[in-house]
Design a protein around this nucleic acid. Structure first.
Lengths: 206, 206
DNA sequence: GCTTGTGAAAACGTTCACAGCC
DNA sequence: GGCTGTGAACGTTTTCACAAGC
């Protein structure tokens, strides 16, 4: 659902506004800040309930709390990273510095040589221990950043370990009947850019 | 247009199949390989013309050529990277090793200390020279991987330099009337994952 | 017989317009 | 008066069903 992908965007703005605990924000103001339309924001929020006050707007603190509840981010959520190559490492670092609600707790890499290597406060673990360690830590969210040929196997191992949602950066589209997989293919995105350059389409998304 | 975002996916599979220059592939086979439905693939391809042969399928070599033409990738395309932090560097490396149709030709970073630093065969340039150098190299595609507060300014400089399409990884949604901007917000994607974990939605996208 | 190409239907997402409420 | 919440209109994307062609 497209709506859900926008909630974190709102949350980000609200948390900034919520530093003044009394601040009230209108859908128009959120629209300005996020680059979306105000009616879209109202529709998105109304889908989950009536959080606003007519004539006034939304309480920043209140709405932020609602969104955190909806997203399941009321307390920090642990994430497992598989693949400590350049991309995985960059994502790990990105998250460690930019986001406190989500936290990588385990990192795995297929390269035995690198097991034990410290990386942004964590230590690389061996994939052979993955299923056990992920299960023991009760991690439900995973990021896959491994080469194409390893991706399918890694996904199955993660599902076996109890993971319930996966963000996949490997260049193969992963699908699994039991868990939600979101695929992001960076090369594909860039190649598609080339089309839009030639066709002067303006605007964009996400 | 959703169709365009899938063309690179087809291209990838076709190029693998096209190693046998006589190979012919059906939409069902492409569907299996890409995780999409066969009718979707036929619709996508039919949107740009009738490339198949009824009863047989599509010539891998022929269709690959058509898609390259449609995407504007018949010859290598130069790309400029702005922001040589962890994320930008990872993307640079990723592209250098995984994709020969697109090639980063210039890299910029705001940190003066890093100007001249070698990076995957390129040398980091100063942002102060960006507009001039990008224009001289006639680059039309750009990737932005800079912190939020710098993103808007960088986008405008790139547009001034003649860039026509942009892939933006900074956490602010960029919009510009004159060029196509595709925004990818990694933190947002991961936060949304948390929702899908809690709601047992299966499947995924892109 | 097998597979493409396509109109029609359905699902999904966004925008519009305004009634309802503070 | 101002802003939310929502039904209706619109547009896009996907799925269905099948006729057309090798």
């Amino acid at each position: 659902m497209a709506t859900v992908l926008r909630l974190p965007l709102y949350l980000r703005e609200l948390d900034e506004l919520a530093q003044d605990r009394t601040s009230v924000v209108s859908s128009a103001e959120l629209a300005r800040r996020t680059g979306l339309s105000s009616e879209q924001i109202r529709k998105d929020l109304a889908y989950f309930g009536a959080f606003g006050i007519r004539g006034l707007g939304y309480s920043a603190v209140g709405l932020s709390g609602q969104l955190r509840r909806i997203l399941g981010l009321t307390e920090p959520v642990g994430v497992v990273l598989v693949g400590a190559g350049k991309l995985g490492t960059a994502f790990l670092h990105h998250l460690a510095t930019q986001e406190e609600r989500l936290r990588f707790e385990l990192v795995f890499d297929a390269d035995e040589q690198r097991v034990g290597e410290p990386i942004d406060g964590l230590s690389i673990m061996a994939v052979s221990d993955m299923t056990r360690l992920v299960r023991e830590a009760s991690l439900k969210l995973a990021v896959i950043a491994v080469p194409a040929q390893a991706a399918t196997g890694v996904l199955q191992q993660l599902v076996d370990a109890g993971v319930e949602a996966v963000l996949n950066f490997s260049p193969v589209k992963l699908v699994h009947p039991d868990v939600y997989v979101r695929n992001i293919n960076l090369v594909t995105e860039l190649e598609a850019l080339s089309y839009f350059r030639n066709h002067a389409v303006t605007g964009g998304s996400a």
